[in-house]
């Protein structure tokens, strides 16, 4: 069996509800996996495909909103769709502030759930694309030598080869060589492209760059 294109995780302590959602999703060709508790979800192996979490707020042992914080702190980034039988505004506010995709009140319509799931999967897809691109950029950046990185940094700051050579105390030819080597290693077609790449890299935590 080939790798799934997407995956929906469902956590609800009520078997009827989680099975119903599972059935609904499979009726429209979406793969899903059900869990009775947050604990169970944490211990499960999750495929690296666009995915989202459909989470009941009231869970035995832990509150869904607290679980959202837990995931955030553990660095598990997954779009969450909350469900509750008796939600209130403060609850919804907290959920949305924590980055939830949707806050559904039970019982909800199929369209509401599907829209939320599609939105969540799309956003996860985008995030995953971006992450993939970033990680490729990073691995390319990591192939550069220390001198090449210095030159690259000054280039994207708009300095001319002559100025760079003066600042680094090397010849202009050496700068040119380093510059073309760095462009090649970063697979940048133009200076503009190189600038965009560096901007993206800067969005990553600093330790990845220096």
């Amino acid at each position: 069996m080939s790798a799934p294109s997407s995956m929906v995780f469902i956590i609800d302590d009520d078997a009827s509800v989680r099975d119903a959602i599972h059935t609904l999703l499979s009726s429209i060709g979406l793969l899903s996996e059900v869990f009775e508790s947050a604990e169970e979800f944490l211990h499960a192996r999750r495929p690296s495909v666009p995915s989202c979490l459909v989470l009941d707020i009231r869970l035995p042992g832990v509150n869904g909103l607290d679980f959202q914080d837990e995931l955030e702190q553990a660095g598990v980034r997954i779009p969450i769709i909350f469900m509750t039988a008796h939600g209130d505004i403060p609850m919804a506010l907290r959920a949305m502030k924590g980055g939830a995709v949707e806050f559904l009140t039970k019982p909800f319509q199929k369209q509401q759930l599907m829209a939320a799931i599609h939105q969540a999967l799309d956003s996860d897809c985008v995030v995953r694309e971006r992450e993939k691109e970033l990680s490729s950029l990073r691995s390319r950046f990591e192939t550069l030598t220390r001198r090449e990185r210095e030159v690259l940094n000054l280039v994207v700051n708009g300095l001319l080869n002559k100025q760079i050579a003066a600042q680094l105390g090397v010849s202009e030819v050496t700068v040119k060589a380093h510059r073309s080597q760095a462009m090649q290693r970063m697979q940048a077609g133009s200076l503009a492209e190189l600038v965009r790449m560096t901007e993206k890299l800067k969005s990553l935590p600093q330790r990845h760059i220096y």
Partner: peptide, 22 residues
């Protein structure tokens, strides 16, 4: 009590949606 009534109703509505799809 609202929770206890809403749970099966949620399942009913959701199964209804699935049924429509099938």
């Amino acid at each position: 009590i609202a929770h206890e009534v809403n749970q099966p109703l949620t399942a009913v509505v959701t199964y209804g949606g699935a049924c429509m799809e099938w």
